[in-house]
Amino acid sequence: MIENSYYSQEVHGPYELHDIGNLELEEGGTIRGCKLAVATFGSLNAAKDNAILIPTWYSGTSKIMEQVYIGKGRALDPDKYFIIAINQIGSGLSTSPHNTPAPGGMGNFPRVRIGDDVRAQHKLVTETFGLDSLALVVGGSMGAQQTYEWAVRYPDMVKRAAPIAGTAKNTVHDFLFTETLVDAITADPGFAGGFYKSSEDVREGLLRHAKMWAVMGWSTEFFQQQRYKALGFSSLDDFIINFMNAYFAVMDPNDLLCMAWKWQRGDVSRHTGGDLRAALGRIRALTFVMPMSSDMFFPVADCQAEWRLIPNAEFRPIETIDGHLALFGADPNALAQIDRHLTELLAREA
């Protein structure tokens, strides 16, 4: 267990910690006293039918969801909806390797799957908020993986689903690329098998990890058109050092690895003996599948192939050259498209 001031109320708040008790994991481990960091916006109505759940993506927290996607007059409007943003296990705010006491923390933290997150979230929203339905589950990237897991695991509870820039079953290519992100961190001698004294000990690994994210997270067109200049950076070096490196260098390596492991293995067909068609056929939610047009992690074709297996689903690709990281909200046109699709989805009878 180590201190890291990045994972704090000052940086990511306000949020509340909810202890859901012991969480037995699919891989056989147990998280004792599992805590979920939760940010809520708006109020639950008397019918309890206006709740929206937002799970977080790799490296992201409820704060970026609040800053980029939630607001008055937006699709995710707290004046209309009770919005619950839950930080995934390993995010650094919820129970994570760096904030778990010895002996179960740091390099000994157990393997967590997407399904474990969703079971934990289900326990929270049913027992703490008394919900038996969700008007919408929406998330990007790993949040999309959790959205699919919600829709397949709890089909009667999820009325609408909006997976953005993510798939229901991870691909071999994406698994391999994520493995290179893992290797970038673990190959740093300062990683010390996951028992470093400070994230600063793994600085070189975190910087390699950040540069690899720059390669795949954006798009060829993003760099060809020097989009980073429109974002306020004077050169490619300026962008890498003062955005990509600055973003990842403060994070905890073990926390990133915890999330990467479950990202690699996201797969709703675990519910149906490996039959993806059968798994996605369980979904009863009105579903809008929304890939980013230039995404290299979760390409349009991969998302489209899954969309064809989902009953009552529509395919709504988001046009952008910002790649996967259009999720960060730097492309206002992409945000406008997402808002428009979510507004339409929420207006549909479910």
Rank of each mutant, 00 (worst) to 15 (best):
F239P: 04
F239L: 12
I240V: 13
I240Q: 01
N242R: 10
F243T: 02
M244H: 10
M244C: 12
N245C: 10
N245F: 14
A246G: 02
Y247C: 01
Y247Q: 12
Y247E: 12
Y247N: 12
F248V: 10
A249Q: 14
L256H: 10
M259N: 14
M259K: 04
A260R: 07
A260S: 13
W261V: 05
K262W: 13
W263H: 11
Q264H: 09
Q264M: 15
Q264A: 12
D267H: 06
D267E: 07
D267A: 08
D267R: 01
V268W: 08
V268S: 04
H271C: 02
H271Y: 14
H271A: 13
G274R: 13
D275V: 12
D275H: 05
L276H: 13
L276I: 15
A278H: 03
A279V: 12
G281D: 09
G281Y: 08
G281K: 09
R282I: 04
I283K: 00
R284T: 02
A285K: 03
A285D: 01
L286C: 01
T287H: 05
T287N: 04
T287L: 02
V289F: 00
V289L: 00
M292I: 03
D295Q: 04
F297R: 06
F297P: 05
F297N: 11
F298H: 11
F298Y: 15
F298Q: 03
D302C: 03
C303D: 07
C303G: 10
A305W: 02
E306G: 04
E306L: 09
W307E: 09
L309S: 08
